[in-house]
Simulated assay, not measured.
Amino acid sequence: MKQGQPVRDASHLYDVERRAEHATRPGFRITELQLSPTQKVPWHTHSNISDTFYVLEGQMRLFLQEPKEDVHLKPGEVYVVRPTRPHLVTNGGTTSLTFLVLQGVGEYDFVPLASR
């Protein structure tokens, strides 16, 4: 995968049904995202922060590299992606997926990745 330029706000890079910021402070933030069955958060990584995913409603399918992994999460389940690990978030079900992503501790960036 080829790395793009890091961005501070990735909201323009992919569409979601809903996006809400619940907490933002230096080095940490909590965002709620809602994805339709056809939406996804494209392949990316973060330079300094981990992503902690917590599923509220629906089914999440998380694809990861380094090492390659395919994770399925349902409501109440949590998964942590370490900094620099490439990942892609998809809706693994037929209804909307709603989840929280806790990001930190450190400076946030979103580094888009493209397949070679």
Rank of each mutant, 00 (worst) to 15 (best):
G58T: 02
A114N: 05
S47I: 02
L33K: 12
N48S: 13
R8M: 06
G104A: 11
E107Y: 07
Y79R: 14
H46Y: 07
S11I: 00
P42Y: 04
F63Q: 13
V71W: 04
K74T: 15
T90M: 14
N91I: 11
G27I: 11
Q59F: 09
V105A: 11
V41D: 03
H87N: 01
D15W: 00
K74E: 13
Q34T: 15
S36I: 10
L102Y: 13
T95D: 15
D70F: 04
P26Q: 12
S115T: 08
Q103P: 08
F28L: 14
S96N: 15
I30G: 11
E57A: 06
T38R: 14
R61P: 04
T94N: 15
P75H: 10
T90R: 15
T45G: 04
G104N: 11
R82K: 15
Q103H: 10
L100T: 02
N48D: 06
R8I: 01
Q103E: 11
P67A: 10
V7F: 01
V7N: 01
H44M: 05
S96G: 15
Y14H: 06
T94V: 14
G92N: 03
L56M: 12
P26M: 07
M60T: 08
V55D: 04
G58E: 10
Q59V: 15
Q59K: 15
P83K: 11
T38F: 10
G4Q: 06
R29A: 09
Q3A: 14
V89P: 03
A10Y: 07
R85Y: 03
E69R: 14
R61Y: 07
F110E: 05
R19V: 01
D109Y: 04
E21A: 12
D15Y: 02
L35G: 06
P6K: 01
R116A: 11
Q34N: 03
G104D: 09
R85N: 01
L97S: 11
R8C: 00
G58L: 05
G27Y: 13
L73F: 07
L88N: 13
T84R: 14
E69I: 04
Q5E: 09
Q5H: 05
Y108D: 04
F99R: 00
G4Y: 04
A114V: 08
T31Y: 05
T98M: 11
T24H: 08
F28H: 13
Q5W: 00
V41N: 03
Y108L: 05
V71Q: 08
A114E: 14
T38G: 14
H46V: 00
F63G: 09
G93M: 09
L113Y: 01
R61M: 10
S50D: 06
R8E: 11
G58W: 03
Q39W: 11
Y54D: 01
G106K: 09
H12W: 00
L64Y: 01
W43H: 08
S11L: 09
P112V: 03
R8S: 14
A20R: 14
H22C: 01
A20I: 11
S36E: 08
M1E: 11
R116V: 07
L62D: 10
K40V: 04
D15M: 02
L33H: 06
S96F: 14
E69P: 08
D51R: 08
P86V: 05
E57Q: 08
E57I: 08
V111T: 03
P6D: 01
N91M: 13
G58Y: 05
T52S: 07
Q59Y: 08
I49A: 06
P112I: 00
E77A: 01
R18W: 02
Q103F: 01
S36M: 09
H46L: 11
Q3R: 14
S96R: 13
P86K: 04
D109K: 06
Q103D: 06
